[in-house]
Structure formats: C-alpha cells, structure tokens
Write a protein that binds this DNA or RNA. Structure first.
Lengths: 156, 156
DNA sequence: GAAGATTGATATTTCAATCTTA
DNA sequence: TAAGATTGAAATATCAATCTTC
C-alpha cells in the first residue's frame, strides 16, 4: 500500500536533519565524555548547576529545574553521583521536607576535567562549523521555537 | 568554589537552547501522539520506513538504517509492534540469516491516523514559527553540522 | 489538601555475548 | 572470519503510589 505524503519533502528533510543531528551529536559527546572521564552528560549538567549555585548547593527541585529531567529521574541521578562521591546530601534547615545536594572537592575536580574535555569536543563538533552570523540566526530561530513549545516558564 | 567559564555565555545559551528545544519538542510530540493513538515516535518512524519501502517490507538492518537506533533496539521495537499486530516478520528467501518486517493492514491504518496527528502537531509546534527564508537558513546550518559530526554515511 | 522527595514497578536503551548462516 | 539477528544482563527513564511535612 501507499501513503499520500503530508509534508513537503523539504520540510521532512529539515525535521529529520534536526533529529539526526541531535542524536549523533549527543551520542558522540556522551561517548567521548564517558570514555575520557566516566561522566555522563547528565552528570556533567548536575555538576555544572552546582558549580554555578551559591555555596555549590541546590535543593532537589532546583536541580530538576536546571535539567531536562523528570523529578524522579533526579533522585536517582543524584544517588549515583553520591555513590561515586561527587556530591553529598543534607537536610534543609527551615523546611524539613527539603533535601539539598552539595558538590564535594572530588566532584569539583571531576567537573573541571570533564567540562574542559566536553567543551573541547563541543567546539570541534558544533561551534567550529558556524560562520558569519549563523550562530545568531540559529539563536533567533531556537528562541522563537522554544517560546512556542514551552509558552510559560519551563525554567533554565 | 568557583569555576572559570570555558564558553562565552552566548555560546552556552545557544547550545542549551538547542538541547532544551529538542527535549521539549520531542516530549510534547511523543505525549500527544501517545495520548491520541498509543504510538511512540519510534514506532511511527518504523511504520513510515515500511510505508515508503517497496512491498512495505524491510530487513532488520534496513529498518535500523532508517532510525536513530542501535541494532538490538530495533529487534525489541519490532517485537512490540509485532505483539500489537502492526507488523509481521518473515524469513528472507535467498539469505537464511535474514529476517524481514512487513506492514499489516492494521499497521497501515494506525500509521495513517498517527501520521496525520503527528504532522498536525509538528506544523503547529515547529513549522508554524518559521518566517521568510529561515527554514533554508536552518537547513544549511543543520546540513553542515551533520556532515561534521557524521563524516561518512550514517544513512537516512 | 498540596509540596518535596523518595520508592517500586515497568518500559526502554545499551552492551556484550550468542547463535546461525555466508 | 564476518554478517544478520536475537538474547540476557545491566543502566537508565518513566509512571504511579507513598511518606513526610507544609
């Protein structure tokens, strides 16, 4: 049987390019980072969130807001980081329901190392290819699309 | 502790926008498609590959080439589609190692329905936001980046 | 009752064997 | 020995409870 196409070929191509690029890019970056430092991209994202946070500490909810993740995913991600000694958990003073996560010295070192390598790969695979004002063009498009998809505030 | 940034803020922003956009877009599309038809985006991709294939049939390897997936992921994805009656498997005539997958009538109907809804959502969330020659700008950027990340041929 | 966080069950991905045929 | 496909085990993601405190 056949099917009457619903998108123009050129539209389909752009959409598939977008999906493919994201897939191969994150796969490459994840592979390289894992091989060189043992960290996953998600782990690096958490560590980055902690590095930029006051006192290098965040509540679970805040960590979640920095990520692309679901709530429960965060709990388990932090579990792994804690098991590996990169972060520690503690109770929040004025809210007994809350827990926070702090970076350990080891976590800081691993982040510095991982971030350097990750950024190098990112420059090589992503930023190096832009010329002229393409980066700005892309920024404009991404911003507009993002507002469309997540109208309110799906945080950082 | 603090950390000396390795990327300019503007660069970080573009990269994070790209990741966030992909995450929210695929999440929204997947949710809507699942709610309305019970299909996953991956399932729809397989069905699309079969629709466009001669005789609506493909070998496992060929299915894999159409997807963003790993080999073993394909086996299990097809398992689920077969369980739901959307495809069937059979032996390849001239190569006893090979297996092929064919679309069933039910699979065709579910694809038509799913594709219509998926494309509507895609237009609304993605294509609707482009103006002027932005789609072409994006295409140019994506193509160049893709060639950089997957130099040889990581297929369609 | 709602918010913050965790847990158990389940679905999906990924990796390294495995098994059969080329 | 390599190609095609599957399988088992382990890692990770997702969903619906659950438990505690607000």
């Amino acid at each position: 049987v056949r099917h009457r196409p619903l998108l123009k070929k050129s539209e389909r191509d752009v959409w598939r390019s977008f999906l493919r690029l994201h897939a191969s890019l994150t796969r490459r970056l994840e592979e390289e980072l894992r091989a060189e430092t043992g960290l996953s991209l998600s782990a690096l994202e958490v560590l980055w969130a902690l590095i930029t946070a006051p006192d290098n500490r965040l509540r679970m909810t805040e960590v979640a807001d920095h990520l692309v993740f679901t709530r429960s995913g965060v709990t388990r991600l932090i579990d792994r980081l804690e098991r590996d000694g990169l972060v520690t958990r503690g109770d929040v003073d004025d809210d007994l329901r809350g827990r926070f996560t702090v970076l350990t010295p080891l976590g800081f070192d691993r982040f510095e190392d991982g971030a350097r390598k990750h950024v190098a790969a990112l420059r090589r695979l992503f930023f190096a290819e832009f010329c002229g004002n393409e980066l700005d063009e892309l920024r404009a498009i991404l911003d507009r699309l993002e507002r469309r998809v997540s109208p309110e505030g799906t945080r950082t």
